[in-house]
Write a protein that binds this DNA or RNA. Sequence first.
DNA 1: AACTAACCGAGACGGTACGTCTCGTCTTCGC
DNA 2: GCGAAGACGAGACGTACCGTCTCGGTTAGTT
Lengths: 199, 199, 199, 199
Amino acid sequence: MARKRSEQCHLAILEAAASVLDERGYLGMTIEEVAQRAGAGKQTIYRWWGGKPMLALEAHYAVPANQHTIADTGSVEGDLRTHLMKLVAALSDGERARTIAGLMAEAQTNPKFAVAFREKFLEPKRAAMQAVFELGKERGELPVLADAYLLTDLIYGPVWYRLLVGHAPLDGGFVEALITSVMAAARAPHCSMVGNRDE
Amino acid sequence: MARKRSEQCHLAILEAAASVLDERGYLGMTIEEVAQRAGAGKQTIYRWWGGKPMLALEAHYAVPANQHTIADTGSVEGDLRTHLMKLVAALSDGERARTIAGLMAEAQTNPKFAVAFREKFLEPKRAAMQAVFELGKERGELPVLADAYLLTDLIYGPVWYRLLVGHAPLDGGFVEALITSVMAAARAPHCSMVGNRDE
Amino acid sequence: MARKRSEQCHLAILEAAASVLDERGYLGMTIEEVAQRAGAGKQTIYRWWGGKPMLALEAHYAVPANQHTIADTGSVEGDLRTHLMKLVAALSDGERARTIAGLMAEAQTNPKFAVAFREKFLEPKRAAMQAVFELGKERGELPVLADAYLLTDLIYGPVWYRLLVGHAPLDGGFVEALITSVMAAARAPHCSMVGNRDE
Amino acid sequence: MARKRSEQCHLAILEAAASVLDERGYLGMTIEEVAQRAGAGKQTIYRWWGGKPMLALEAHYAVPANQHTIADTGSVEGDLRTHLMKLVAALSDGERARTIAGLMAEAQTNPKFAVAFREKFLEPKRAAMQAVFELGKERGELPVLADAYLLTDLIYGPVWYRLLVGHAPLDGGFVEALITSVMAAARAPHCSMVGNRDE
DNA sequence: AACTAACCGAGACGGTACGTCTCGTCTTCGC
DNA sequence: GCGAAGACGAGACGTACCGTCTCGGTTAGTT
């Protein structure tokens, strides 16, 4: 019976948050500034997002360029190459990269957000990646015993590592080398994993 | 003639910092509380460490159990296994794991600390790991074209990824699967990397 | 053509306001809580009362025990004694006293309400009190030059003063002493006042 | 051993508070604005004053024109006249009057402040006033049975009443009439009060 | 009987100030 | 002059209410 949530205000806040993220980065973003730019009250943000991390996550996600899906190109290597190239291209925007690094950082010190970040952001990407490997197994590109869960760690682990540590660039050369390495690992016989899954 | 830096106070602060890290985690640690527990002034901490991240880093490092070196066991696989097993054992202490995750998080939002963290903490570990692969190449275990820099990313990337995301355990099974995969990647022929090094 | 004001809702709000005043005092009363207790919307309150002070004033007034009239006992002293005794008896209920003190406080910081409070609440009491003295002059109890307006200040001033400051009790002894003093002042010859009236 | 309270900052805050009181009145004064004008942090104000009412009280008191003492003119009437004339003159500055009315209002809704206001502000004035009557009794101007405590209520009560209600001006005519009335009351024989004192 | 305008409950909204928190710097005094 | 103690400026935090607004749903009185 009450007034409905204003979609316009919802969008204004997301846009304001996105622009603040761009200009100041995750750390420099404050609820106060987002509210002011959106012409919104702080309470409205706290009501719907509960705080800065969830707002930043949704604001990041709302940008179409940050919604990476994995296209089926017909081969595992092709899927990986297409996806990872788009990914590193997106991350070459420094502020965008700092934002998602900031979200990962927040997850380290905020257990409540860690769960949301994993479930809303990381797991969907993992699931899509695992599907690529599973499809590869069905097509006979990869041995049936290949462990898609582990291979996903092998792909995303080094990408995140370079993103967070910044010791070397995330570029095409890195992507190619990573694909070559992971494909080699996938084709090697190795026992299936036990005990390393989410419960 | 100035009074000299008090070694006793230095140690008291490190101990206090370590105990606060244990009890409250990296985020919950404040300079104020460390100073109080150490019976020290805040200025003393700012004078010698410059801030919370550097103090936490040194306090973490000062614990002997956190100083991992890589022993030479005669084979790459053995070196990796020995080192990684010790590593995951240390990280199975939740608070210890949260501390170094917290340091990584801090590095994401604090560029000055990011440099120190990389140079003082991460690079030495990388260098030791690269040495393992280089030694393997010398011994003929690995092809001479194997890219030790990339292989280091392949090892540490997934470890950090699981540590930070927490989607699956860091345990013996994971270590074994990781070693098998990376060894397979190392033995596969792949072009050497270009342009992915620190400048 | 339109729906009429619901008397039931009107009463529910007044009752809710009275109970909140009792439990939390004037300061602790919020429109939000009154609305919730009454099962009413906030807008309904703002529509009919305009805000918290007017609501509190009407809620206070709606309680029969707070509607003091002055009975004619045949003598000024008797009128004063009867009225003031009832008054201090009502004010000995702490929360009731706090409510009217709160209304006076509100009037200090809210000019719009100050006018309403004076006209709806204070002036009627003053008028009744002045009538007592005028009647006394007609009956020859007081000199014709006695200034009923000033005498009203002399009566109500100290009562409000003790109510607001709380340095000494509002009790029978005080009432007697006050009456004695004011009667003495009334009988003394003193020039009529100039320039101290409402315009 | 620690840093001492900065007298300069103390004064800057009091001055800023006084100027805000002048410009915006008690209600419109906010800690935030006072801090900003004084170039101080909000915490500094909360540390030393605990909140707006105590700050406003001290800021009001710090203005020399608000420190009314009662001079000995040789007669009770003279003392009263001199003091009350100065008092109403000070209160004829509207903003000054609103400030002390605001303090009295605050005391109605803030029991902790009520105590401070009574003890630091009201009681000293009462004590001085009582001393005037006691001196009058010693000099034989007033009967020895005159109740100085009650007479103080009779003086200050109507003054506060007019200040707070604003139904009539606080001017010289009012002062004269008040003095005449209270002197008449003081000279009339009336039993000493019982049970109307602070405990 | 259908229309329709105002009333009602609910509660989202833009604001504003609150009092708290922590940061990193600055000042004072004891050793 | 080092070091403890802690005051200081700064500014974001999350909360509490304010008074306004927008919803459906619910009554009356017309038409």
